[in-house]
């Protein structure tokens, strides 16, 4: 929930659960060159089970924020906690790995290993577990991992393509494989960076439907970025807008107005 005071519009504070937030950022800053702040004092809280859309124009810091949340991009200042553990310089490697294991990440460009089979790519989602070198290929993976991989593929309706090479699938299918890879470990949190951006409108909507259904079915918290306002409003409980590295507004999806969007995307 929004604690940010400056440069923001009013935050419609819907009632939030009393439990500790899954993600909590206070005054989060990030800069790559010490001059330009990509993230400039972000305050946000995300609770378990929420579906949150992060919107904003290109370069406003959405992707950087997502990657900072799981420690892929080290933060420059402020505090960040994920699953109750600090993220950043003060977190240990074990904490970082543990946190990543509880998180699924879906990238805009699928990020599959092109030359491997679809099933092997999904089993890659189990890297980081004990004996995870066996996740290298479905041929070496334990039977239980193969079964989990196939089940995850079944959930995205691609079980019949398990032995195809990843680069033999269409863009929409590859994105569904990426979702299966993110879900195979049954994460508590699923982060998606513009998951539908590289897809045609129909495939994009299918992917967003799939996200929404699976996260609801498995009680997974969903945090995603989108340029498509329909995707942001239709599939999220809450919309957080970023502008120039700051939170512009944070409110329930049904209360986001066209005027909000205009302010968000107007230069």
């Amino acid at each position: 929930m929004l604690d940010h005071a400056t440069n923001t519009q009013t935050a419609d504070t819907t009632e939030q659960p009393q439990a500790a937030p899954l993600i909590m950022a206070c005054g989060l800053t990030k800069s790559y060159d010490r001059r330009n702040m990509v993230l400039d004092g972000i305050d946000l809280r995300i609770w378990a089970g929420e579906r949150v859309a992060l919107i904003g124009s290109n370069g406003c810091g959405k992707s950087t924020l997502l990657k900072s949340l799981i420690g892929l991009h080290p933060i420059s200042g402020g505090t960040l906690e994920c699953f109750g553990n600090p993220v950043g310089a003060q977190s240990s490697r074990a904490q970082r790995l543990q946190m990543r294991r509880q998180t699924g990440f879906v990238f805009q460009k699928h990020c599959l290993v092109r030359r491997r089979t679809v099933l092997s790519n999904v089993i890659h989602g189990l890297y980081g577990d004990r004996g995870s070198w066996r996740a290298f290929s479905h041929s070496l993976a334990p039977e239980e991992w193969r079964a989990r991989g196939l089940q995850a593929l079944d959930e995205v309706d691609l079980a019949d393509k398990a032995m195809r090479r990843a680069d033999a699938l269409s863009g929409g299918q590859q994105q569904r494989v990426a979702i299966a890879r993110a879900l195979v470990r049954r994460p508590q949190l699923l982060i998606a960076d513009e998951p539908a951006a590289s897809l045609d409108p129909v495939s994009g909507r299918n992917v967003m439907n799939l996200f929404s259904q699976l996260c609801r079915a498995h009680g997974i918290t969903l945090l995603y970025t989108s340029h498509d306002m329909d995707h942001a409003i239709d599939y999220a409980d809450r919309v957080i807008a970023l502008k120039c590295g700051k939170v512009l507004f944070d409110r329930p999806a049904e209360k986001v107005t066209p005027a909000d969007l205009k302010v968000t995307f107007d230069g």
Binding site: I70, L72, L97, F107, C111, V113, H124, Y127, F136, R181
Partner: peptide, 22 residues
């Protein structure tokens, strides 16, 4: 390709796993 490496890193894979897997 850097993207698959980043994807495995995001999952919690170590350097060796990224080498072998991606």
């Amino acid at each position: 390709e850097k993207e698959p490496q980043e994807a495995l890193s995001a999952i919690g894979a170590g350097r060796g796993s990224i080498l072998v897997g991606a």
